[in-house]
Amino acid sequence: MTARPRPRLAVWKFASCDGCQLSLLDCEDELLAVAGAVEIANFPEASSAISDGPYDLSLVEGSVTTAHDAERILEVRKQSKFLVTIGACATAGGIQALRNFADVGEFISAVYARPDYIKTLATSTPISAHVPVDLELRGCPIDKGQLIEVLSAILAGRKPNIAAYSVCIECKRRNTVCVMVQGTPCLGPATHAGCGAICPSFRRGCYGCFGPMETPNTAALAHEWELLGASPQEIVRSFRSFNCAAEAFRKESEAHGI
């Protein structure tokens, strides 16, 4: 068994904040086990020793926002046996997909002293808009327990246990009292599980970091938010954050007239 070559891992960065790939380095207790189980062949954030592909597993962080990146992801795909996107940017376009709702040219002229230096696309798009993706890991940032689960599953050749149901199920399993029923608007009922229902355990509504759950009824949830006193602007802003370009959240954010 020890004679078997270790699978080769690569970690790629596109438009992102690095938080998700840092989750891998943040796996303090498991990091040695990860390093023992895979050959970390290409992970510039961790090591300057970079080996050429092909790779058995690529973890891709970030969204595609430039023509250069739109080319680069094609090459990453070619070099990778398994391609797993990590986080809201790679999976939904990230917070930078707010540009999809506006005129990126206006942003550039307002922000940069020399707009002509900036070459960017009009939209921020998820990796799956460019190449086939084997698995998408949600979250802003991802949950390191889920990352370890995916790595363990791929190494064992089994299906990873990544549930696509609501945050509510995690809330109830951990015995958190529902904040929404107590009057605090919460995105949990429409949001993909995975974080372990952190925010409601601190008496805050869910921010939707993990994006839409498998069968999101955002219209019914938004209606309930209205009954709890949320303004249309609050509803739009809540759906339009890290996962604003995820289909269900985008549509709901556009349904409130702002």
Partner: peptide
């Protein structure tokens, strides 16, 4: 179903 969130809360409680 138009009002149901399929969140599973009813079954958990």
């Amino acid at each position: 179903a138009r009002r149901c969130l399929s969140c599973g809360n009813c079954t958990m409680v």
